[in-house]
């Protein structure tokens, strides 16, 4: 390698930190625009949904186990179970189902 690994790492860290920091440091006032407020309200729902599906189906190597984890997690979430318990139950269910 001609380039220095630590320089690579520092560059990656700086770029990533700037992206995370700028909005938090700069955006201070209540947003006037109803569109922007609505847009940002929907961002977490859309982005987390996109990151969950279909990736959860591929996570274990078995789409059936992924679907099981997904169905169980949705059911428990809608029943009002807390997030740590949901994650734990889902892992446990996948483990037990993989033994079958």
């Amino acid at each position: 390698m001609k380039h220095n690994v630590y320089v690579y790492i520092i560059i990656m860290a700086l770029v990533t930190y700037l992206i995370r920091m700028l909005p938090l440091a700069v955006l201070r006032k209540e947003l006037k625009s109803r569109f922007l407020r609505s847009f940002l309200y929907y961002v977490p729902f859309v982005s987390l949904s996109v990151m969950t599906f279909p990736q959860i189906l591929y996570a274990t190597g078995s789409p059936a186990l992924g679907a099981l984890a997904m169905a169980l997690s949705i059911g428990l979430s809608l029943a009002g179970v807390g997030l740590d318990i949901v994650a734990l139950c889902s892992c446990l269910a996948v483990y037990l189902a993989s033994l079958l």
Partner: peptide
Amino acid sequence: MALSVALYSMFIAVVFPPIRHNAFLAVVV
């Protein structure tokens, strides 16, 4: 393998509960 679903289950546990109070979010998700 079993641990690999944990992150996704957490995403689900974050995104789904608000649907109970705002049904339109089901469409969004």
